[in-house]
Computed example of a mutant assay.
Amino acid sequence: MVIRARAVTLSLGSRAAPTDILKGIDLDIAAGSSVAILGPSGSGKSSLMAILSGLERATGGGVEVAGVDFTTLDEDGLSRARRGRIGIVLQAFHLLPTMTALENVAVPMELAGIADPFTRAEAELAAVGLGHRLTHYPAQLSGGEQQRVAIARAVAPAPAILFADEPTGNLDEATSAGIVELLFERRRAADATLVMITHDPALAERCDRIIRMRDGVIVEDCAA
């Protein structure tokens, strides 16, 4: 199992008046699988992804990801643990506006100490169909192109796990279809485990497994 979560809770707010976001999640995800986490707004699915990807610390329970015990790590430790192990694609592209497409993909690898970051970035951008847009800035790219850069940035370090949170949420229907195909193709090329947050049942059915959440708990877990 590349992900193990046991009795994971997340509470926000004060001790006197906490808001329980996750209420005791138990979850195992096998290496190489693709998993969709489906649920309405407020169900806790994005919060669960944030904890599993090391962007958020659980209030309680245990989380082990790619052989690392996330439970014992502070924010700096979680940041180090993500490097090279985890790639993340979000609904908002989160590209740095002052960097070119090539720099947006290469610089995070350079800062992480990954060898040949610009060579790898150029190859991955070519793989997502942007070999001719290396020197363009985000403002010069369409929404679909920006998400392609974000996918390249996530996949270029060859992570063990690829997380995607509503990856087509800011795109029109025609562009979304191409981005979905690209996401799954690049995931296969990297041989990465895919954990995808979505509200779209049709997109969820592209995965091997569908987990449905409601009110901070898993209510269904089945093969797609």
Rank of each mutant, 00 (worst) to 15 (best):
R120D: 06
A224I: 02
G42Y: 01
P108M: 09
M99V: 07
S176T: 00
E220T: 02
A174R: 00
N170C: 06
R4N: 13
D215F: 02
I161M: 04
V89Y: 11
A192N: 11
P40F: 08
A101M: 02
H94K: 12
S11I: 00
R6M: 10
P157G: 13
A126Y: 03
M99H: 13
E185S: 15
E75A: 15
R214Y: 01
F70T: 07
I218K: 09
T19C: 05
L95V: 10
E75Y: 10
D20Y: 01
M99Y: 15
L125I: 05
R212A: 13
D76E: 15
I114F: 02
G216H: 13
S142P: 02
G32A: 10
S47I: 02
E181K: 07
G129Q: 14
S34Q: 10
R80G: 04
M99F: 15
E122V: 03
R212Y: 02
S46I: 03
R80L: 11
L134E: 15
T19W: 08
M1Q: 04
D165Y: 08
A66I: 05
A152Q: 11
D208K: 06
T198N: 04
T71Q: 09
A92D: 10
A36M: 07
D20W: 02
T100Q: 08
D215N: 11
T135F: 07
L52V: 01
V8R: 11
A123R: 11
V68N: 13
V149F: 10
A58I: 00
H136N: 14
R80V: 11
M196G: 05
G60W: 03
V217P: 00
A160N: 09
A152G: 06
A50H: 10
G143C: 06
S53H: 03
G60D: 00
A115C: 00
V219R: 11
G54M: 05
G62H: 07
T119I: 04
A36C: 06
I161C: 09
E173P: 00
A16V: 01
L27G: 04
P40E: 14
A154L: 01
T175I: 10
G131Y: 12
A164D: 01
H136P: 01
R57Y: 02
A150R: 01
P117C: 15
L27C: 03
L27S: 07
A112V: 00
A30G: 09
A224R: 10
V128Y: 13
S46T: 05
R212I: 01
Q146N: 14
R187T: 15
G39E: 06
I114H: 03
D74C: 04
